[in-house]
Nucleic acid binder design. Structure first.
Lengths: 325, 325
DNA sequence: CGCAGATTTGAAAGCGCATTCATTGCGTTT
DNA sequence: AAACGCAATGAATGCGCTTTCAAATCTGCG
């Protein structure tokens, strides 16, 4: 493997000049620059990342921590991070915590030794721990806010409001809400709006895990409540609800309307297609990387952005309320 | 940030001893070892990964290249890789090629400068290019075979055979096959078995992209063929088929049976739940890392493993064939 | 033509660690 | 008791690069 020194020799310049020709082209005269570039090309020179990192103090890697890669929500954010990172950075180290808060902290600390900065999707990690992690290196949070730490969030409240208004327009008066994990920032956001829409009474079905089986199980509670519509913490839960409703012989949307949250691909694969709130997940990934780069460049600032806009997508799982008996 | 030298001084030993105490504990006397460990702990010592990598020639990173992280197939493999890599390695660099073969090669080469070895899920990259990449560093392929390169594969042929036998047992005599991309290794494997099952006539619906809309579009061809069952390249396609069938008023499984491939989570979220071939994706990720480690340790060998076993999961989308007119 | 100031260049000094090699100290063997 | 082998240690070297810093070259102007 050719080293920078080899390139320098081949180009008839010093290693210092070769280094500059490659990383700061305009600090070198045109003649030498082309000589170096040609020599590098000709030798198939590939810079040694470890050496670059050691000498410069920057690995040009960034880290991404997610609870579950096979969850389309996080996978999409990851794609956004990837796309934005390409070009300005070398690569992104991804860590999947497997929804296990215990290893999460350790994993973050470990990852921080290898990267310049971290994008953290960690709904369940206690705020204090997040703050402690932030002392070890730049961090940007996704879909969550913690005092003193930059974050990119979604306008969750607006999403819930849009959903509620949509249901009200369809003459629903009683809607059930199947909540997510009690400790989730995002869940708290949702709940701030539930009582805000006049003319709609929201029945709280309680906190549930944000997964399909939880929706399936919670459905009977919804039915008991007498609500004509269900608002679910996320699409996975909504999917579980729809499945259980069908099993109980309740028709969607004729007998009951269902609204999800997140707009994962599967939402369009089921029948009826799910009405849900769509989040700009890819964009969130982009923004997170941008903010990280900003934090890396400037120093001491905690850039904050307005919550990303969300949008209700009306599909087939919502319809006018049936007449109550 | 404390360096190894600081630790050594605090422990009253030489940097060499400190280094050994941390990375090869049994080459150091118990007394000094504990001294070093205590000093390290006390100073909050974190080894500098870049320096370790430069000095040792090993980054302890491994790379993973996938076409699309938001595809549950690859996401699950990624989880498997993650899980196995944790412990023996530092981290895994993930690269999403966005299904773009053009950037794929460049991405791989770039990633190879940062990792010790690569796990490559790249169904579409030409074999020659794959081989060229393999000259730059250890590579393990997933779900694909290329001459001279270690790979972990699934027993795809067995899966198709199981599906066909299942359908035959249900008295299906004509089944349509919706194929995947023509250049896919996995697709070629499937086709080797199609004609092998006696008593079943397979109607070839041609090659299609492995996505939901493609299944949706191919469905009308299936209906035209007079087949009483459809075998799909993967679950996404099968989902598209089911959706279109419903739109056309064809009942599943009463009028026609549908079989998928991969067993993605969504397969159980739809109604009827999809009969499909389940692949040990997580295990594939494990195996890939194991093989990579083996390739890194020994030298010059190309370990090969038997294809991973697959299993037909019978759910609700298949039923006895209706009587032909 | 000569000199201040700006621009290019190369020598050299690490970055933090692993690792080789020579040295030391120790227990064994005959 | 001498000689030997082995384990434990530290000094020193270098991994390949970036980045001062000072020297060299070039620019324009009086």
């Amino acid at each position: 493997m050719a080293t920078l020194r080899d390139v320098a020799i081949a180009a008839g310049v010093s290693p210092a000049t070769a280094s500059r020709a490659l990383s700061a082209p305009d600090t070198v005269s045109a003649t030498r620059r082309t000589k170096v570039l040609e020599a590098a090309e000709q030798l198939g020179y590939q810079p040694n990342r470890s050496a670059q990192a050691l000498a410069s103090g920057r690995s040009r890697h960034l880290g991404l921590v997610v609870p579950d890669l096979s969850n389309p929500f996080f996978a999409t954010v990851a794609k956004g991070v990837q796309a934005q990172a390409r070009g300005t950075r070398n690569a992104v180290l991804v860590a999947d915590t497997d929804e296990d808060p215990r290893i999460e902290h350790e994993l973050v600390r470990d990852l921080q030794t290898s990267v310049d900065g971290l994008v953290l999707c960690s709904p369940r990690m206690p705020a204090a721990l997040v703050q402690e992690c932030a002392t070890q290196g730049p961090i940007v949070l996704v879909n969550r806010e913690v005092e003193g730490i930059p974050s990119v969030t979604f306008d969750v409240a607006s999403g819930i409001r849009q959903a509620l208004l949509h249901l009200r327009a369809l003459r629903h008066r009683t809607v059930a809400y199947i909540g997510g994990p009690a400790t989730s920032w995002s869940e708290a956001q949702r709940r701030t709006v539930l009582g805000e829409v006049e003319g709609i009474r929201v029945v709280d079905i309680g906190h549930h895990r944000p997964v399909y089986p939880a929706g399936f199980a919670a459905t009977d509670l919804v039915l008991e409540s007498g609500a004509t519509a269900v608002l679910c913490y996320n699409d996975l839960v909504a999917l579980g609800v729809m499945s259980r409703l069908r099993a109980r012989g309740v028709r969607v949307p004729e007998d009951i309307s269902v609204v999800g949250f997140d707009d994962i691909p599967t939402a369009t694969y089921v029948t009826p297609m799910l009405t849900t709130v769509s989040l700009p997940l890819t964009r969130a990934g982009h923004e997170a990387v941008t903010m990280l780069d900003a934090a890396l460049a400037e120093d001491g600032t905690t850039p904050t952005t307005a919550p990303l806009p969300v949008e209700l997508v009306v599909r087939e799982s919502t319809a006018p309320a049936h007449e109550s008996p």
